[in-house]
Amino acid sequence: MNLFRLLGDLSHLASILVLLHKIQTSRSCRGISFKTQALYVAVFVARYLDLFWRYISLYNSAMKVFFIGSSCYILYLMKYRYRPTNDPSIDTFRIEYLLVPCAILSLIFNYNFMPTEILWSFSIFLESVAILPQLFMLQRTGEAEAITTHYLAALGIYRALYIPNWIYRYFTEGVIDPIAVTAGIVQTGLYLDFFYVYFTKVLQGQKFELPA
């Protein structure tokens, strides 16, 4: 564990708490892509079911339980409790365009051709693009509530912090995880446009609005 990874994980944790706070206080999931949230459930279940056969630390296990539990809870809130506030007509990204390529990539790029390792690779690839339906929705509506942008910023910062973590681990432990690093760089790259608007507008007190 190093500071980059710890701060990254805390940022990830914070992003989910911000999202829950947004949904609970506004009693609405307006502006949140159900598809992205469903993809995160798939990512966490595919990757963190190793809870049952791989023990790393209490920290690691507790985070895994939290991420699986909270992502399922968010889906429940969107699908049932606040269903009327969820507008599928603007959540139109075709997720099969993400699922199929990720499935194929995970069959080609994995560390061992066995179901658990293929699932692990699949989850890494899928996580890297799971935010696309959300960003696509943002692009379509052209604006977002401030709190939704804080959620996205925390999520993006989590991924960005994993990059110095890998560099640090390469020099201190001599390890490198090419699959995670490649997917992680792609994932962070997807946030660059968003970060630009977030740091130049939202953090200056302006509304999050994309140029028409």
């Binding site: 990874r5 994980d9 791989r54 790393i56 681990r169 390890v175 995880d177 995670a180």
Partner: peptide, 10 residues
């Protein structure tokens, strides 16, 4: 080539 990590990250 350095060894691959043991999936110890989240």
């Amino acid at each position: 080539v350095p060894p691959v990590q043991a999936h110890d990250e989240l």
